[in-house]
Design a protein around this nucleic acid. Structure first.
Lengths: 211, 211, 211, 211
DNA sequence: TATGAATGAGGCTTCATTCAT
DNA sequence: TATGAATGAAGCCTCATTCAT
């Protein structure tokens, strides 16, 4: 799959990894701005500071870059959920990220809603992408479950497996929903979103519900 | 905007409308399968049973078709919210739609999550699409508020403006979140989603919250 | 060559001639504005107030319209030279025509330098056009010779055949040159051109020359 | 304007210039034969011995090629006027060029009347071309004035500014007229044109006129 | 490793022309 | 006679990908 030879010195392998990273960074930016189909290899190369031809020494095709970008998303989401103590904290964090995106327009390493949606849309078409995304979703649900368990532990509450699953599902839908709404309505008042979330998210209880 | 002359007989106008509908139907299918930029005019023409050139008698450009498809989404969402009496009923309805999509793969006129996401992703890039989507979002929020007011009336509860706004926001995020999650995880158990929603959505109260 | 049937009543033949004239009038305008290749049959039809398809009942092809337009040019030039008594009068008349063109932008029936050049350029490519133009040139030279003979008669001078030929050549080159220069330099001061021509054109003498 | 990056090694820049030249050479030929709009990029590429796509590495669009060709015309005319000592010499030279064109059909670098007329016709439609042509006309008039001043100096005559302007105008019209007539009438006897010019062009005098 | 020239396929769009009505 | 729907070819241009250097 990868065009890079398995062999080579330690040093050259490190170099190769650095090159791949540069390409992916450039691709992320281009894909975010123009979409997978709208971004050209030439533009990605330019952004990465190399010729388009050279990219093919590190990735077999544009599709492989897309797959790699898709694969990276998992880390971004995981990082976002690590060390978060409650659902509300997590939701507020995503609101912060959305505001960052609106104002600064996407710094490297930050969560990029445009890319997130591009990947999701592509998953509807490319089965390989769909499989990657689906696998990530399960992991992300696990991460979310951990956040909720942490919150429950802090609150001194014990959740049944069923309650945990339901709270996880709800929280995830809310989170994705916030992202989608922010993207679809650039005029959406994020402070109001934050306030609403604060008012609406209740302390965890053992019993299922409520919204 | 439209390349068709204003005049023409009754019959020819009807015919033109039929042709436009055929093209839009074909475009919907192609865009859903391949994305706006992955679908070619040739493919759309083939799907519509006509030459690619003929499409330009009814639409000035591919972009105009994309705009028309985007504009249509509003009707689809509006139809879905009409005559719905409560948030839970609405959410269950969207779950039904997602199951339809998974099984039948998108019938004409039905809500198409792939297209919905394609439009949203495109809104990140094309300001014209962003404006359309943004306008639709406001209308959809109004529709959602009506659903909630209906539910409140039925429950004999009076909602403050603030509470109404918050419930609307929550419900919309949940709804969009359900769509996104279903698309991103084809393995997601829709029956479990339905069950969770039933358990989680509480009767409306005057007070803000809770989730 | 022509798609029109030879038969038909007197009335229908007259009608056909009127239609041809309308088409040619429209084509003249379109060709002048957009060039032979830049003007579409649809646009010509629109300008003529008929469908593009109908044009083919009166002309076998676009090329035939071009040929017809080319053929018309002869009349325009001929009309311009009729009843003109001297070279200077003729040259001043062309200066007037150029000013009309600059200000009014080409009325129907008027001499159109853009069309004149379009035809000339096309003559370099299409042998059929070249033949038409070449034939017209001979006729136009004859017309010019008549103008000069008229001038000589008025001046009481007898020109040798050789002198006549030379004066004709000179006058024609001057005339075409004025047209070309006016087109190529929209800033050219026509009044100065007129003044220069007045100063430069001397009474005819029997002897060859001078300039 | 140019799609080529500014940087690059000495060698690659030289190569790029050579490619541009090859393309322009091919375009000149194609435009001369078929006109700006009749010549296809594919044909130009074929003539230049490269794929049509490659052309876009050296020119941003077909329009840019047209502009480049148009711009070149100035040099061709300028070259023709350099080191010419009199109006008659200049006119005879253009007659020579026309004969070359008729016989050899346009060698690279030679003056091409078909192209000259194509450019002029295009100037009637495209304001960008019109501006280029207009600017060239002024320069060409300056060049012509210099030729005339040279002739006056040789003849020991001092020309007033007004006389200089008038002689320049006359000479230029004659010159353009000769070109136009040669193109429009392929049967025109160039030797007779030459003889007529010789007979008609008189030595310069201080006084305005005569023709 | 790295470049950038080169290609061929394909995309969007226009248009002359034909034909059923 | 007249329309306008319909097509197929062609045009301009872009781009992923390959390859000689």
């Amino acid at each position: 799959m990868s065009p890079m030879p398995a062999g080579g010195s330690e040093k050259s392998r490190a170099r190769a990894q650095a090159q791949r990273a540069r390409i992916l960074e450039a691709a992320r930016k281009c894909f975010s701005e123009a979409g997978f189909h709208g971004a050209s290899m030439a533009r990605i190369g330019e952004q990465a500071g190399m010729s388009a031809g050279l990219i093919y020494r590190y990735f077999a095709s544009k599709a492989e870059i897309i797959r790699a970008i898709t694969g990276e998303q998992r880390e971004v989401r995981m990082r976002a959920m690590a060390e978060v103590g409650s659902r509300l904290e997590l939701l507020e964090r995503i609101v912060d990220k959305m505001r960052d995106w609106r104002t600064s327009g996407g710094r490297p390493g930050a969560f990029d809603p445009a890319l997130f949606l591009e990947v999701t849309a592509e998953a509807c078409r490319d089965p390989a992408i769909a499989a990657l995304v689906s696998a990530q979703e399960e992991e992300t649900s696990d991460d979310m479950a951990q956040v909720i368990e942490r919150e429950a532990r802090t609150a001194g509450v014990t959740l049944s497996a069923e309650a945990l699953r339901q709270h996880t599902l709800l929280a995830r839908c809310l989170l994705d929903g916030v992202i989608l709404r922010c993207v679809r309505d650039p005029g959406l008042d994020l402070e109001q979103v934050r306030a609403s979330l604060r008012a609406l998210v209740r302390p965890l209880t053992d019993q299922p519900g409520p919204v």
